[in-house]
Simulated assay, not measured.
Amino acid sequence: MIVFIITALIKITLLIKLVKLEDDPTVFFNRFKNNFHRVYFNPYSEQKGYANFLKNMNEVKKLNEEHPGRVIAYQLNRYADLDPADIKEHFGIDISPYDHVEDEKEAIARREKQHKFLEEMHLYDLNEVEDLYEEWVKRFGKANFTKKLEQTIHYYRFVKTVVETNKKNFAGQNVKLGADADVLKEPDQYFYG
């Protein structure tokens, strides 16, 4: 009986430590950087990461306060210093800076099986897609379309393929852009009528 009570107390304490946020955000941010080996290239990128971290930390606090006394909790993950809207704009993928956990086992499992760093994945930046398209055309010897409409349609298909490729790479698949990246998969895919 005593062993059961001690085990339960340890599990509860562990869960509280996993989901409780520090009072001092700077201390918590430094712990986050150490735990996830985050390195920033300059003071501006670190300030931006800290601002995103604070915003996401406050969101997690709010979500946890909305569910008082329940085992369901939210905890920050390695994307806590990123802005999901920026990532969507740059790569066309959806990330969440926090995880929703049901119990202490799930909280521990999520901490042990971490999300990959975006830097570790081969993602194409949508802000650089025009240059990527030009390189791709040269690499695969694609015909230079003479009609502006054909060129636009194939370019849009290429952009859509880049987003699909990013989503697959984010999901853990190792996908690269192939020679068919601009091939329309449906007739009149980009026409409205």
Rank of each mutant, 00 (worst) to 15 (best):
I5T: 07
I6Y: 13
L9P: 04
K11M: 15
I12G: 09
I12R: 10
E22V: 01
D23T: 08
P25W: 00
T26F: 14
N35V: 09
R38F: 04
V39K: 11
Y40F: 08
Y40R: 01
F41W: 05
N42P: 02
P43Y: 00
S45C: 10
S45W: 05
E46T: 02
Q47P: 12
L54F: 02
N56F: 00
E59K: 12
V60T: 05
L63G: 04
N64A: 10
E65K: 01
P68G: 08
V71G: 11
Q75I: 06
N77S: 07
R78C: 04
Y79W: 11
A80L: 05
A85N: 15
A85F: 13
H90D: 14
I93K: 00
Y98C: 09
V101I: 11
V101S: 01
E102H: 04
A107R: 06
A107S: 15
I108L: 11
E112A: 03
K113N: 12
L118Q: 00
H122W: 05
H122L: 11
H122Y: 10
H122N: 15
L123Q: 05
Y124P: 01
D125G: 02
L126K: 05
L126Y: 06
N127L: 12
E128H: 11
V129L: 09
Y133C: 09
W136G: 02
R139V: 11
A143P: 14
T146D: 12
E150T: 12
Q151L: 07
Q151S: 13
Q151N: 14
T152N: 13
Y156K: 13
V159M: 13
V163Q: 08
T165L: 07
F170Q: 00
G172S: 06
Q173V: 05
Q173N: 08
N174K: 11
V175F: 06
D180C: 04
D182W: 01
D182M: 00
K185V: 15
E186W: 01
P187N: 07
P187T: 03
D188Q: 03
F191H: 00
G193D: 05
